[in-house]
Every structure is written in C-alpha cells, then in structure tokens.
C-alpha cells in the first residue's frame, strides 16, 4: 500500500489554500475589533485551529497519508488538551 504514487497538489489548489489562509487571518483580526468579551478568544482559537488544520491536511499531506499519522496527530492534540485540563484543575479551584 505504501508504494502508491505520492499525491501532488496542483498549483491552482496551492493558491486557493493560500487565499483561504490569508482570508482566515484577516477574519481573526476582524474578530478582535468586535466586542465579544470572553468569546473572542474562543473564536480566534477556532480560526487558528482551522488554519492549522488546513496547513497540516494539505501542506503537510496528512490528508493523503496512511491513517496512522492522522490518528497520532489527533491523539497528540487530545493528550495536550487533557494535560492542560488536568493542570487547570489545580488553578481553577485553588
């Protein structure tokens, strides 16, 4: 299975990825101008996560790799968030 030809994106696809990433950056900047209180952090992080997803899926080819890589990346993020959560259990209730 690993001998199948590597997937190569077309130039057009590359450009549309770039445009999507730029638009998302300006959306995030725009969000800071709107008063949303605590929600703005959440929105900004969601936008950053979408950008990270696009880069990892297309630029870093995760979308075309064997599932092992995708599963491990997802597990890694879960692990990090879980560690963060457990650490916060101390600070929130202190």
């Amino acid at each position: 299975m690993e001998h199948k030809k590597t997937h190569i994106l077309s130039l057009k696809a590359q450009i549309s990825i770039l445009i999507a990433l730029i638009v998302l950056t300006f959306m995030a900047i725009g969000v800071t101008k709107i008063e949303m209180g605590a929600y703005s952090l959440a929105v900004i992080l969601v936008i950053a996560a979408i950008q990270a997803y696009i880069i990892m899926a297309y630029h870093m080819h995760l979308k075309f790799e064997s599932p092992f890589f995708r599963v491990m990346v997802i597990l890694l993020f879960i692990l990090f968030l879980a560690v963060l959560f457990v650490t916060f259990l101390d600070y929130i209730y202190r």
């Binding site: 457990v86 101390d90 929130i92």
Partner: peptide, 11 residues
C-alpha cells in the same frame, strides 16, 4: 505543595 483540593482528589 499547595494544589487545589479538586486536583488532589483527581490525581
């Protein structure tokens, strides 16, 4: 060390 009570129980 002085962690919160909740953290103590969980750990």
């Amino acid at each position: 060390s002085g962690m919160s009570g909740v953290a103590l129980y969980i750990f």
